[in-house]
Simulated scan of single mutants.
Amino acid sequence: MKTITAGLITLMLAAAPLCGLAEDVAVSGSDSATEPAADETALDTELRSEIERAIDAGLRYLRAAQADDGSWSQSVGVTALVLRAYLQSPRGSTEEDGPFIARSIAYLLDHVQDDGSISETNHNRNYNTAVAITALKATGNAEYTPVIANAQGFLKGLQLDDEDGYARSHKYYGGIGYGGDERPDLSNMYMALEALKASDVDPDDPVWEKALVFVSRSQNNSETNDVKVSVDDGGFAYMPNYSPHGGGESYGGMTSAGLLSLLFAGVDKNDPRVQAAYDWIRANYTVDANPNAKEGQGLFYYYNAFAKAMAAYGEPTVTDTAGNTHDWRRDLAEKLLSLQREDGSWINSLSSRWWEGDPNLVTAWSVIALNHVYGT
């Protein structure tokens, strides 16, 4: 029987702890609605330079905000995200670039626990461990392979299945939550799958097939969901038939996370689940808000997940259901550039829910999003 520590997160960052989950209002559909020619979808030199400057400014802000112990916000999760932002930036920072990188890695390693988790707290252990795996893997340093392997085992051990008393017919089967035996959710699921994918877990490992059971049940798509859905639009909710924004509504952050989860788990791009999620994005395309979320909530979580989802899907443009073609990289880059503060940081000025009042977290997310925009 797997040992899973209980401990329902009291903060109930109900949509993703640091991983901030949530989004903002309804669709605006006003983003660059002109149809570009095929050779116009590449970022032009001027915009690429602006993105580079924005990333550099964000990283300078973060370097100045680092604590003496090597952390950001005294959090393994935030520290791992900042480290990833540095390592995957256009400058390609490495451990040799300065003590600020080495100290952040040391902080993560100092919080490796006997059970394989990497966390400073018993809460959010899945999230913290997942983003720490991704950051340590991004260093390219084989010295961390044993730590990563043990952390992979910890994440797999959190997955709810028959050993935990969850029959396959249970709506939570295959899911992963915050790190105890409480309810799983799609945000924690996506973060775990991203870490397992980044750290090269065997595609035939049972973790993927089990995960797809829960991921598919979190999609509001009656064609492919064996759980009756209250909404049937192809998007994703936070968990089966539940959204922190009301009812079982689909919304932007989770639909991007759901699309990513399907792709991480090896689902073909032409699979009806992938196409239904992509069609929801087409129908709700915007970078002005987190579609279908309460105003301002989880906005930067959405930007981060949207950038990764679009990069993984692999299309340079999105043609919305009204027939307008959008260069998603340009749209997102220009939006993030417009929201960057003078000191180089980003913060959600509309809602601080799910840690989006922490400029360290939000700046790390924004840089990671721009890294995906720049690198695609």
Score class of each variant (00 low, 15 high):
36 P>V: 03
368 I>Y: 02
63 R>D: 05
94 T>E: 12
30 S>M: 13
33 A>Y: 08
120 E>R: 02
134 T>G: 08
307 A>N: 03
213 V>W: 05
30 S>V: 14
260 L>I: 14
322 A>N: 12
60 R>P: 04
294 K>W: 06
252 G>N: 03
373 V>T: 03
42 A>G: 12
52 E>M: 05
363 T>A: 11
68 D>T: 01
335 K>A: 01
40 E>M: 04
333 A>L: 04
267 V>S: 06
289 A>R: 11
198 A>I: 01
200 D>A: 13
6 A>P: 10
280 W>T: 14
184 P>D: 12
232 D>K: 06
103 R>T: 00
22 A>R: 11
323 G>Q: 08
124 N>Q: 11
176 I>M: 03
299 L>H: 07
368 I>L: 15
232 D>F: 10
301 Y>D: 06
12 M>F: 15
264 F>W: 10
175 G>V: 13
85 A>C: 09
73 S>L: 05
118 I>D: 06
131 V>A: 06
187 S>Q: 03
227 V>W: 12
235 G>D: 09
314 G>S: 09
82 V>I: 15
186 L>R: 01
191 M>A: 07
274 V>W: 04
46 E>F: 12
203 P>V: 10
118 I>V: 15
342 E>K: 15
57 A>K: 14
203 P>E: 03
205 D>V: 04
256 S>Q: 00
278 Y>N: 00
72 W>C: 08
40 E>W: 05
242 Y>L: 14
93 S>N: 10
64 A>L: 06
68 D>G: 01
265 A>P: 04
193 L>F: 06
22 A>G: 10
105 I>C: 00
59 L>I: 02
298 G>K: 00
16 A>E: 15
110 D>M: 01
48 R>G: 08
18 L>A: 14
172 Y>W: 09
308 K>F: 03
314 G>Y: 11
308 K>G: 05
129 T>K: 06
